[in-house]
Design a protein around this nucleic acid. Structure first.
Length: 582
RNA sequence: GAUUCGUUAGCUCAGCAGGUAGAGCAUCUGCCUUUUAAGCAGAGGGUCCGGAGUUCGAGCCUCCGACGAAUCACCA
């Protein structure tokens, strides 16, 4: 346990020490730096900045709270910037307003010396406009609401140009709270994310669909091809998996008689991480009875169009160098036609061997495990996918790739599946759902055969799901849409880490400085501890992992080489040291 | 996983072709009652990511390691 909670650096920086002293001095003055009482606020920064220019009789008795973001002190008067959840506003303090009597402590000591950038204060006063034309709260009193003990990165701005921006991705993601404090545009991105989700919910509520919750812990991880995270339930003494999708549960609910269900689902996939993948991510999946994938295309494009309009007020959205127009209807093309369009080759009707040759000719890499479906997908992925910048539905995927999808009504080698491509990336995936229980079981079995061949992402057989289908599922269409990717598109962010508050990171390792004393504490005698690092064991862990005999050889060799006047070490001693190491 | 780049003060970054570690902001002290990247004068602040090596001497060179980023691969 200990190793996950290494103490932060024990050494406080000068600035941190000064802030702790200020904290103590505040207490000495009888000021509680962390008061309990509610601080009643009657206005936001945004309201003032919007309304005061229209009517300067407003806001003559405001109570406002926020974080100090900058200070400009000029002797007996000061300006500071306070930030609340709506934005920043300047405040103005005058010594003789704050301290009308003889005692000037509140201004001279508390405000000027003991408060810092990062502290929360509340102010009461009235709004006016300075000579320089800035809307400002003239504070006649202030209250300390919370003292900050760590200095924030100082980001300055003039004429829209940002100086000393806080941009280091490592620090921004590990300490997202700091990122949110100093980078206003980051806050905006996540507000837009919330708008997108809200807009989607509204759209689906309006159609009368039911928002549901299904298990995150699943005994069989189904509904997608991906490696799951495994955990263990103690009471039941059985493995459980974090869901990779919620598809099979939502379809059970369709069997149960609901005609439209959807879920915003956190899904988990134990796979690589990059600009487009985080181990946990959010998908919205929806299933509607009596519909097919054509109907679902319309729902999807209408929904995405509405989101663009709600977030941007227009269907045109800048994504990287491209302007994407989410105006309906979106283009539709089958995967085979797409391949024809971009390679000039008609792969329909080709067998596996011909497809393999085609891949070779096109320079598409393959391996021997790939079946027809994967080969076609490889060609598409390499030669076509990046070209679909404007929203496009790619339709009718090969049957091998889609074990939960109904066969195409005209061609049993294909399925009624579409993916929505935007900016060369997959955004949504949908089927006319397979509701034939016998075919479903066959397809599951085919997946098992793939698994036996070595495909570690093939699906598992979920017999309970098959049983549900055996009771009868109405014809249904279902769709899943990636919320993180959608947010990336709608906010023009280049990486998934920019749209997930706390993206997965390697654990932060504070490098601990190891000294001979650390070895002494583990039972290594002093005369060895002072040489053990030089002899090649720079950490206790290294010492533990090494073979006792190897350690003995190394240490005694070192002793001889350096002519140390200490007794040679015995293997039993070394074994004892190793026992002492965690 | 591969390659490349990066890690120096609280923050953003310099640092010569190895020779006592620099700037701006922040901090501290003083001045300043409408400033706004406030200003002026002064001061303090560093395990140069960790370790080993080469060298009289390493922030800089070599090797090993940690973490991050970009590109590619893998994966969907």
């Amino acid at each position: 346990m200990q190793k996950f909670f290494r103490p932060m650096s024990m050494q406080l920086s000068e600035q941190e020490q000064i802030r702790r002293q200020a904290l103590a001095e505040l207490k000495k003055l009888g000021i509680d730096p962390y008061p309990q009482a509610e601080y009643k606020v009657n206005v936001t920064a945004k309201e003032i900045l919007e309304n005061f220019p229209k009517d300067n009789t407003l806001y003559q008795d405001v109570s406002f709270a926020g974080r100090i973001m900058s200070r400009r002190i000029m002797g007996a008067a000061s300006f500071a910037e306070l930030k609340d959840h709506t934005g920043r506003i300047q405040i103005y303090l005058k010594r003789d307003d704050i301290c009308p009597g003889e005692d000037k402590t509140m201004y001279n000591t508390v405000f000027k010396r003991l408060l810092d950038i990062g502290d929360f204060i509340g102010v009461k006063g009235y709004v006016f406009i300075t000579k320089m034309g800035e809307i400002t709260i003239h504070a006649t009193e202030f209250t300390v609401l919370s003292k900050s003990l760590r200095p924030l990165p100082i980001v300055k701005e003039k004429d829209g140009k940002v100086y000393d921006a806080f941009t280091d991705p490592d620090q921004r993601f590990r300490q997202r709270y700091v990122d949110l404090i100093v980078n206003d545009h980051v806050k905006d991105t996540f507000i837009k994310r919330a708008q997108i989700i809200r807009s989607m919910r509204e759209f689906l509520y309006k159609k009368g669909y039911l928002e549901v919750e299904t298990p995150v812990l699943q005994p069989i991880p189904g509904g997608a091809a991906a490696r799951p995270f495994v955990t263990h339930h103690n009471a039941l003494d059985m493995p459980l998996y974090l869901r990779i999708a919620d598809e099979l549960y939502l379809k059970r609910l369709i069997v149960g008689g609901y005609e439209g269900v959807f879920e915003f689902a956190k899904d988990f996939r134990n796979e690589g991480m990059d600009r487009f993948h985080n181990p946990e991510f959010t998908q919205m999946e929806i299933y509607v009875a009596y519909k097919d994938y054509f109907w679902m295309m319309e729902l999807t494009e209408k929904m995405v169009e509405k989101i663009a309009l709600d977030v941007h007020g227009t269907t045109k959205v800048q994504i990287g160098d491209n302007v994407i127009d989410f105006k309906t209807p979106f283009r539709r093309i089958t995967i085979l036609d797409a391949i024809k369009e971009y390679t000039g080759i008609d792969v329909s009707g080709m067998d596996e061997k011909e497809l393999r040759e085609t891949c070779k000719k096109l320079g598409v890499e393959t391996d021997e495990y790939m079946g027809k479906g994967k080969l076609i997908d490889a060609i598409f992925g390499e030669k076509c996918e990046p070209n679909f910048i404007q929203p496009t539905f790619i339709m009718d995927y090969p049957v091998e790739m889609s074990p939960l999808c109904k066969r195409h009504r005209q061609n049993p080698d294909l399925t009624e599946r579409f993916e929505l491509m935007v900016n060369g990336k997959e955004l949504a995936n949908a089927y006319t759902e397979l509701n034939d229980p016998i075919d479903q079981l066959e397809r599951f079995k085919e997946q098992v055969r793939l698994a036996e061949k070595g495909d570690d992402e093939a699906m598992w057989i979920d017999m309970d799901f098959v049983r549900a289908l055996e009771y009868g599922m109405p014809p249904t269409s279902g769709m899943g849409i990636g919320i993180d990717r959608l947010t990336m598109f709608m906010t023009n962010q280049p990486s998934i880490q920019e749209v997930i508050f706390f993206p997965q990171m390697r654990p932060e390792k504070k490098q601990k400085v190891i000294t001979p004393e650390d070895f002494v504490a583990l039972g290594v005698p002093e005369h060895w501890a002072e040489h053990i690092m030089a002899a090649g064991f720079t950490t206790p862990a290294q010492l533990k992992e090494a073979k006792p005999t190897a350690v003995q050889q190394k240490l005694n060799g070192f002793r001889k080489k350096n002519k140390l006047d200490i007794p040679a070490v015995q293997v039993e001693e070394i074994e004892k040291w190793q026992e002492g190491i965690e």
